[in-house]
Design a protein around this nucleic acid. Structure first.
Lengths: 226, 226
DNA sequence: TCTTTAATATGACAAATATCATATTTTTAA
DNA sequence: TTAAAAATATGATATTTGTCATATTAAAGA
């Protein structure tokens, strides 16, 4: 079992506030898991009873809409924690988490985490700040969905993927989403998403090779995204 | 100056965790304000340096979109706190707050509130839970904006206004919004909103008398909202 | 009160987006 | 490897939604 004290990823999450003693104790009670691409970490409505720390990989957080379609609310990657909101609210999780690529995650039981809230003020503040960041992001995202066109949202999302997750050696976006997933981030029909990608390609803004997407003209995309 | 110890509204917010001593101290440093309908409490981008406790009235939290239109992210009413996220993140506020009716609010400076975070764990937990509630709401709202039609969103919003803020003696919705404001909650053009309200009226779902809206057939509206 | 301005309403039309059908390509698994 | 299934692509068309023009009504100020 790997030691939390030596885990670099910890430095990027709220857990960086933990003391050496707390980390040693944490190592003993956490469990490590390998999640394969496509596998579910938890499902909307479940009682998770703890948080997941992402050591490697990217997952999507989705919510089922009344029309039966999944909407992708957020992408989460290494260094971030999952299930904080649910644990603090003491409610089932509001979103499902599904791996977009192979992942390494550690599960920390609720009992352990709640202890930190009592004894480690810096940890509390870190968690609070992280949730506040999520809230700001959600509000901003909401305004975009309400006010921007599908084309603007697609351009914006491509730039977001590029900025947040970077690109491979061949310049293609590192996070590979299906057209369906891309559509369910921007909130449109799969066909509309495919059509707009084709348009972008014809305009020389992007290059498409199978699932791979290469951003060719970032400035033009920025203009499109407004 | 009214005393916080005797303020009933306090019981409905995170402030309910404060001790008698803390409340006495709070009474001394808080400032009370009357805000007239239409007046701005704070504006997006401002440094607020504290939180507002709403003693009476309702306000809208809005964000300016790139297209120049305001989007209403949330309505907030008595017993709730404003500016928590900004204070915790130590950032300018992300949203503007504008009174929808005459309001009474109290301002509590940051220095005072931050002290509670250190010394009063229950207060911290309350604030965290409240922000977690906002986040869940925002995520749910996001999915609705992305996946539901304007008609569904309008029906849902009317029901929300009814459930959350209640109605007057004449059965009309207590919170009076202009068509423009209603449109900027559901994320559509003002004309589309007006048109759909007319449709709802023709179908006997609602009654319109000037700005007043009476919900006539709640079950049918629920079906429409899915 | 009267005048001016703003809000609400509605028609006509344009643009954006969704849906359905179907072809093509890619992936999966027998 | 090959057959079946899934994902991607594109056309045709319907529906939804936005925009512009213009009444009509309500509200605000002189």
């Amino acid at each position: 079992m790997s030691k939390c004290e030596q885990c670099i990823v910890r430095e990027f999450s709220s857990l960086k506030a933990l003391t050496k003693d707390e980390l040693v104790k944490l190592s003993d009670c956490k469990t490590s898991h390998i999640i394969k691409k496509g596998e579910v970490i938890f499902e909307e409505g479940e009682n998770v009873n703890g948080i997941y720390c992402i050591k490697d990989g990217v997952c999507k957080l989705t919510k089922l809409s009344a029309n039966g379609k999944d909407h992708i609310v957020k992408l989460v990657t290494k260094g971030e924690l999952l299930g904080q909101r649910s644990m603090i609210s003491d409610e089932p999780v509001n979103l499902s988490a599904v791996a977009l690529e192979d992942m390494q995650v550690c599960f920390i039981p609720k009992s352990e985490v709640m202890g930190y809230f009592d004894k480690n003020n810096q940890f509390s503040m870190n968690v609070m700040k992280s949730i506040c960041g999520d809230l700001k992001e959600a509000d901003d995202h909401m305004v975009n969905l309400a006010q921007k066109t599908v084309k603007e949202r697609l351009a914006e999302t491509l730039l977001y993927l590029n900025d947040t997750f970077g690109k491979n050696e061949d310049n293609s976006l590192k996070v590979q989403l299906s057209r369906d997933e891309l559509a369910s981030i921007i909130g449109t029909a799969t066909e509309s998403c495919i059509r707009l990608l084709s348009d972008f390609k014809k305009l020389g803004l992007i290059e498409l090779t199978g699932k791979k997407i290469v951003l060719k003209d970032i400035n033009a995309l920025k203009k499109l995204a407004e």
